[in-house]
Nucleic acid binder design. Structure first.
Lengths: 147, 147
DNA sequence: GTATGTGCAAAGGCTTTGCACACGT
DNA sequence: ACGTGTGCAAAGCCTTTGCACATAC
């Protein structure tokens, strides 16, 4: 019972990829979870659970949290500490692209950044300590130019 | 016995240094905060507020949190996400030495590590993005050998 | 003696869980 | 039809705040 679109079978967007992965994991294609997935797919950086709940008017808060839990379990999204009270979540690129975050302790602003050298060093560290690294979540804290 | 100490200038331990800093910042030398400071001074890695509260029997939980807030404000300690529900805290070495953490997503074990190359790359990044970096808190997540 | 420090208890905020009903398969 | 998905409300847990008393200065 494959709902695969065409012979290519390559999902065009992260949301499609995530929905397919959830389906393969045995989850049904419910409408509320789908809305959570699509919201995450439209974001380029971290969003908190409460922000998602605010934007998804017909969706219960519990459903948002449950969907996030399932997706994090499958490695589709990543939980990120954005400094506030609520945790941030963002999609994980299946092709391995990712960024990190600088949080301003003054105004709370979150700025994403990428750095190839940093990626390489992290990769070396993860091999050095006998750990099998699943993800790395680097958050720098500082003061931005406006503060 | 210490041969290097001169008349009340250089604090011999982190706890003394922290208590001096708090005093200079205008805080009085209360007994409960002192116990929190000394507990932190005896730890080499992150401890949570609730763990501290458990160990400090006569000290109120509110006092623990208030002391942590004050010390973090002064940069004496650093808040660290150790993956659980409760936040971790650890002393900041005034001489700049520090380590980072790998958290096992299987058993929750926290392993500290150091890496000079990583430090240098972080330093470069912090200068590149126009941010004034106060601290960096790098947490890798993975599976340890026992899991 | 006065202002800060502290413990207790209550409140706050984010997250999780229980349960009954709706929906996907 | 059956079992999962979902919304609502309540509970849980960490953390913060209010208040009265103790303590440092």
């Amino acid at each position: 019972m494959s709902t695969a679109t065409k012979a290519g079978t390559e999902p065009a967007t992260w949301a499609e990829y995530a929905l397919d992965s959830l389906s393969e994991a045995g989850y049904r294609r419910g409408g509320s979870r789908r809305r959570v997935v699509e919201l995450l797919g439209n974001q380029s950086c971290a969003v908190t659970a409460l922000e998602m709940d605010d934007q998804l008017k017909g969706v219960g808060r519990a459903t948002v949290y449950r969907a996030l839990e399932q997706m994090e379990e499958l490695g589709l999204i990543q939980k990120i500490d954005v400094g506030g009270d609520s945790a941030g979540y963002e999609k994980v690129d299946p092709q391995g692209h990712h960024h990190h975050h600088i949080v301003c302790t003054g105004c709370g602003k979150v700025v994403p950044f990428e750095d190839k050298k940093l990626e390489q060093v992290i990769h070396e560290v993860s091999e050095r300590d006998g750990f099998s690294i699943q993800s790395h979540d680097i958050t720098l804290k500082g003061t931005c130019e406006d503060c």
